[in-house]
Simulated assay, not measured.
Amino acid sequence: MVDLNVDEWTQEEYLRNKRVLEAEGVKVLLIDTILNPISGTETLTYSPPLLRSEPAGSVFVFYCDSGKSSKERLKEFRAKFPDHVCISLRGGRGYWRKNLRV
């Protein structure tokens, strides 16, 4: 069971929860808010019109360089996307380990 009532996921939680949720038919997207994609993983550039078209219940995991700004903006993201789950990536792009696998 994945807890979606949290503000942050670590990279390991993101990878593990993405696998579980997608097996249940829930879309999980890693959202780039700084126009700097993370190499080695699929990211989507922050675009409200595009994100609103994603299925209700989809999980958006937002990241910035350090994880600080994306966490501070969670209230804004949740207001913009009330039909989706919004979470921040702890540590942001700076803590992403491209060789980490779960």
Rank of each mutant, 00 (worst) to 15 (best):
K18N: 01
T10S: 15
N17D: 08
R90C: 08
R93A: 13
S88D: 15
K80N: 09
R90K: 15
D7K: 10
Y95G: 07
E8F: 10
P82I: 08
K27S: 15
N5T: 10
P37G: 05
D3F: 05
P82S: 07
K98M: 13
K18Y: 00
L35Y: 11
G92A: 07
E22R: 09
G67A: 11
T33F: 07
F60A: 09
E13T: 01
D7T: 02
N36L: 12
R97F: 08
Y63Q: 06
G94E: 01
W96K: 06
L89Y: 01
G91S: 07
D7N: 14
G92D: 04
R93I: 07
K68C: 10
L50Y: 10
E42P: 05
K27L: 14
E76W: 12
L21Y: 12
L21E: 12
L4Y: 05
G40F: 07
I31T: 09
I38M: 15
L29Y: 13
L35A: 14
I87S: 01
K98W: 09
V59H: 03
W9A: 02
G92P: 05
Y14V: 01
A23H: 09
F81T: 06
L4T: 04
S66M: 14
N36G: 11
V2M: 12
E76K: 11
V59F: 00
D7C: 02
H84V: 02
R52W: 05
S69A: 14
Y14A: 02
T41V: 15
L89C: 06
N17T: 00
C64P: 06
I34Y: 11
S88W: 04
E22T: 07
S39C: 07
A56M: 08
F81D: 11
E22V: 00
K98I: 10
K80F: 10
V59K: 07
V28F: 00
R52P: 01
T10H: 03
F81P: 08
L44P: 04
Y63T: 02
R73F: 14
P55H: 01
A23C: 08
G67R: 07
C64M: 07
K80E: 15
G40W: 08
T41F: 12
R90N: 11
S69D: 14
T33R: 10
R93K: 14
T43G: 01
P55A: 02
S53C: 09
C86K: 02
S88Q: 07
L35V: 09
P48S: 01
R52M: 11
R93W: 13
G40H: 03
S58N: 00
D7P: 03
S88N: 15
K98F: 11
E72C: 05
F81W: 02
I31R: 04
V26Q: 07
K75L: 12
L35H: 13
R101G: 04
P48H: 02
S53E: 15
F77N: 03
S39L: 10
S88E: 05
S47Q: 11
V85Y: 15
I34K: 13
S53L: 13
Q11R: 00
G25A: 04
